[in-house]
């Protein structure tokens, strides 16, 4: 039973926080679809990643502290060494072929899920300004 309770609490922790604007909420909802479609296979359903292979997104210091680099990674791909929550990853994520709109939506989803609580909306305009 402990396992069930722990699992349910995990699920509940995915709930969005009340102060999000409607615009952000809608973007997060679209972003969930993009995430399932393009990201979940490696970063896993709850953003936990796979240790030493695919970095986590849930409560990930890299994601939360390096907004620009994170958007850039989703837009253009990322390769080389990065450190996430103290673990070094030296691999590569190919460019996913997402539109600026989709990049913004999926960023909003990962920045505001699984205990992540950024709250500051990523807009397509912000994404469009990020150069390779």
């Amino acid at each position: 039973m402990i396992a069930v309770v722990a699992f349910l609490s995990l699920l509940l922790s995915c709930k969005t926080t009340p102060q999000q604007t409607l615009e952000l909420k809608e973007s997060i909802a679209r972003g969930a679809g993009v995430y399932e479609n393009f990201c979940m296979n490696c970063h896993m359903p709850n953003g936990e990643g796979i240790t030493n292979a695919f970095p986590p997104l849930a409560k990930a210091d890299y994601l939360m502290n390096k907004r620009r680099e994170s958007i850039k990674a989703v837009k253009y791909g990322l390769s080389g060494e990065i450190t996430v929550n103290g673990v070094t990853y030296n691999s590569s994520m190919a460019a996913l072929g997402l539109s600026d709109h989709e990049v913004a939506d999926v960023m909003n989803y990962v920045l505001n899920s699984w205990g992540n609580d950024d709250g500051k909306i990523v807009t397509p305009a912000e994404v469009s300004k990020i150069e390779p």
Binding site: A3, V4, A6, F7, L10, M44, P45, E48
Partner: peptide, 15 residues
């Protein structure tokens, strides 16, 4: 169902 939930939990927590 219980087994399923348990499996889901194990899956999520242990990768």
């Amino acid at each position: 169902n219980y087994v399923l939930v348990l499996m889901a939990f194990v899956g999520i927590s242990s990768c």
